[in-house]
Design a protein around this nucleic acid. Structure first.
Length: 770
DNA sequence: TCATAGCTACTTTTT
DNA sequence: GTAGCTATGA
């Protein structure tokens, strides 16, 4: 038996050795999924002489792709180079780059990220004279994105009775029109958004049979990671590509499907067996990652879900210790106790910083952990949030590069036409945009022909100066590599100088970020071959821009850093850590308040919890806070229902007070482990009482109110103006009026002691007095 | 035309 | 608590 096959268990081996025909691998958490995928690729090449050029492996994250590639390269060396391994988005972008003219796009089409997309939506809304309070860019984006991910174009959308009716009911009848205008605008700009990369790939394959057959022949063996997270667009493309050889291998775990909000449908994996005849199904049920305790907690919680493929995960690992459940008074205490526990484990059990991960439901939760770690001098790194490439200064600089490569890119143009300030202000810009629309030409063309359009002499001079310098950059495009050209642009545009002259701390950071960006371009041109595709050497600026558009900050991997990692649970999928903290286990936060209205949504939250738990190898610590600041307001939450769903014999509650649920206002704090005393110390530390309203100097100080003995939050659905209520902090008051959307009602309350305040009823806890 | 202060809406998750 | 937008004055 070949060496690379050794150490595989029976099912793993079965999955690897299966050569032709469709196969579905149901891979439980920690069951060696990546190992199976990579070994399968190695086996295809080593034992069956399959050409690397004929293998396509698709993942959801760059990180997963890089890991796979690396593992294959480890065994096969240079042969691995020609494999097509990448994310759906990056592989499709590469294909589309080659085929763009067929679809009427320039090869150097721009890829719009979420910010660009929203910005285009705002532009379109303005031009259609629509109120962006009714048509919130986020809502519109979601709607369009959902449509594209279901392969519904603007024309189909407008004719889809159900969709149109939905929009009408939501009081957004112009949605179809917006979608159409948005699509046209992107096309005019020579740009595709994230969803287009999937949608246009589908269009390419369906409208151009010769392209379909070309890629069908090329990709004889197809492997899909995380199949449970595919959306209909991805599903259809895979089906098309695999139709000729039917060598489609999908790997997934229905229990880890956590992206339905992005259009993923669990049906794809549940139905796979119906898509092809003779599907081989292999289940990987042995977990190599976690202790018996952790695994049984995960199993027991997920058993509450109705929709799932039956399977039994087991492990030969040790029993391990109980799961620690920690309750704290506030979110800040939660941060401190986690930091403290990390310290404890480091000292007593010799863990390193890099062994710890802190996971949470929402990005906003990172703050308290971050502060606590910083205070204790524990090095950490936050993943997610604003990625490097989304920072303003980086985007500004990139906009120069983008406009050089694709002058039709209006979003980029608007960013930099007056940055650094050169006397082309808002009035001029508005006029130019108007001219572009009236004459049906691009904004760039208006600027290049500015003399014809009667701008003021000074303004005209400014425009011409700008146009000439961009034209100069463009003329260098074919002569210079990405880095040299970027350097020229940085110097000549004045961007670098502008940042250099800003000596404030933020200015310094911005300057460094742009330098960092230049470094990354240098790195790009110096990398010997393009790891993404295996195709050698497109070092142009256009290639660089398309690559980074799909990068997130989780991808710039300084993996070896020995630091504590903070990230959302979504971002942690596919990763494992010796010690895992999961924070904010509270109702309304996790499960999130947005997701408790239907069984499907709640089950997805539960799967998310399952993902969180199964990241841990040795130790798992769950925390929740009695009160936490959210949205400026102090909120009280009950412990998460998931806490109750865990097998209690595996839980160490000695850090959680005595009562499981509904901690009463006085009870639960009197017993005393050393740790608990310490915790109480934190809770009652002499920090000044927090203000739950903004601290405007003119406003009178809050007259603190002591809640009544019998304070119980009332059901506020039938709240009426004129009723008297009690608020825990602001005291007694009278409802002056009710306003806001029905799903987010806002009450204006005249408080006896604290004046008038606006309170969001979704969050507030009010007792109706009479 | 530009800088700034103040107001508002937002927080679910992301390629 | 903050980013992004608007109104205001220089």
């Amino acid at each position: 038996m070949s060496q690379y096959l050794q150490g595989l268990n029976e099912s793993q081996l079965k999955a690897v050795l299966h050569k032709d025909g469709p196969i579905m691998i149901i891979a439980g958490a920690g069951s060696g999924k990546t190992k199976v995928l990579t070994t399968r690729i190695i086996h295809l090449m080593a034992a069956h002489d399959v050409d690397a050029f004929n293998i396509l492996a698709l993942t959801f994250t760059n990180k997963a792709a890089a890991e796979m590639k690396e593992r294959v390269a480890h065994i096969l060396g240079n042969n691995a180079r020609n494999l097509y391994i990448g994310t759906f988005h990056s592989v499709f972008a590469r294909v589309l780059r080659a085929e763009a003219p067929k679809l009427g796009y320039p090869s150097d089409f721009t890829i719009y990220d979420a910010d660009d997309t929203k910005s285009v939506i705002k532009t379109v809304l303005k031009e259609l004279n629509l109120d962006d309070k009714v048509y919130k860019p986020n809502t519109v984006y979601k709607r369009i994105s959902d449509a594209k991910n279901s392969l519904v174009g603007p024309a189909e959308y407008a004719m889809d009775k159900f969709l149109v009716q939905e929009d009408a009911r939501a009081n957004r009848p112009a949605m179809a029109e917006i979608y159409d205008a948005y699509t046209r605008r992107c096309f005019k700009n020579g740009a595709m958004d994230f969803d287009d990369l999937l949608f246009k790939m589908y269009i390419l394959l369906t409208n151009f049979p010769e392209s379909l057959s070309k890629y069908q022949q090329k990709f004889r063996y197809i492997l899909i990671d995380e199949y449970q997270d595919t959306n209909p667009a991805q599903y259809e493309v895979i089906k098309l590509l695999g139709a000729m050889h039917e060598n489609v291998c999908v790997v997934g775990d229905d229990a880890q499907s956590i992206y339905s909000f992005r259009g993923a449908t669990i049906q794809n994996i549940l139905q796979f067996q119906k898509d092809y005849d003779d599907v081989e199904v292999v289940k990987l049920e042995q977990n190599y990652r976690s202790t018996k305790t952790i695994l049984s907690v995960a199993n027991e919680v997920i058993a509450n879900n109705r929709d799932q493929i039956p399977k039994t995960l087991f492990t030969d690992n040790t029993q391990g210790e109980k799961i620690r459940l920690i309750r704290t008074m506030t979110d800040n205490d939660e941060g401190r106790i986690v930091a403290d526990t990390i310290q404890e484990f480091r000292l007593r059990e010799h863990f390193q910083n890099g062994d710890f991960a802190i996971l949470y439901r929402t990005n906003a939760q990172s703050r308290s952990f971050e502060e606590a770690l910083r205070r204790m001098g524990i090095p950490y790194r936050i993943y997610g949030g604003l990625s490097f490439y989304q920072r303003k200064e980086v985007k500004d600089f990139l906009a120069y590069l983008r406009i050089t490569v694709n002058p039709r890119d209006e979003e980029a143009l608007k960013r930099i036409v007056n940055y650094p300030v050169r006397g082309i202000g808002k009035t001029t810009q508005d006029k130019a945009v108007l001219l572009a629309n009236e004459n049906n030409i691009s904004l760039w063309e208006v600027l290049t022909r500015a003399a014809q359009f009667g701008f003021r002499a000074g303004t005209l001079e400014a425009i011409e100066g700008f146009v000439n310098s961009v034209k100069m950059y463009q003329s260098e495009l074919s002569k210079k590599n990405a880095f040299d050209l970027a350097m020229i642009i940085g110097k000549s545009s004045g961007v670098v100088k502008e940042l250099f002259n800003d000596k404030s701390a933020e200015g310094l950071a911005r300057y460094e970020n742009v330098q960092e960006l230049l470094n990354s371009i240098k790195e790009f041109i110096e990398t010997p071959d393009n790891l993404e595709s295996g195709e050698v050497g497109d070092k142009s600026l256009g290639a660089y821009l398309q690559q980074i558009a799909l990068l997130t900050d989780a991808d710039d991997s300084k993996e070896e850093e020995n630091v504590v990692r903070l990230m959302t649970i979504h971002a942690a999928k596919g990763l494992e850590f010796p010690v895992v903290f999961v924070g904010g286990l509270e109702e309304n936060l996790f499960p999130n308040a947005m997701s408790i209205n239907s069984r499907e949504e709640l089950e997805e939250e539960r799967r998310l919890f399952y993902v969180a738990v199964t990241r841990a190898k040795h130790k798992l610590i769950l925390t929740y806070a009695n009160t936490r600041y959210r949205f400026g307001q102090l909120q009280q939450n009950d412990p998460s229902r998931f806490v109750d769903e865990m097998p209690q014999e595996h839980i160490d509650r000695s850090y959680a007070g005595n009562s499981a649920r509904q901690p009463s206002s006085s009870g639960g704090w009197s017993s005393g482990s050393a740790f608990e005393r310490m915790q109480r110390g934190f809770a009652s530390a002499p920090t000044p009482p927090k203000q739950s309203y903004s601290v405007a100097p003119a406003r009178p100080a809050l007259k603190e109110h002591v809640p009544s003995e019998n304070f119980v939050a009332s059901d506020l659905r039938d709240l009426q103006a004129g009723q008297r209520v009690e608020h825990q902090k602001f005291g007694f008051g009278k409802i002056a009026r009710l306003e806001g959307a029905s799903h987010n009602p806002i009450a204006t309350i005249d408080f006896d002691q604290n004046g008038q305040k606006k309170i969001m009823l979704n969050y507030a806890r009010l007792r109706i007095v009479d």
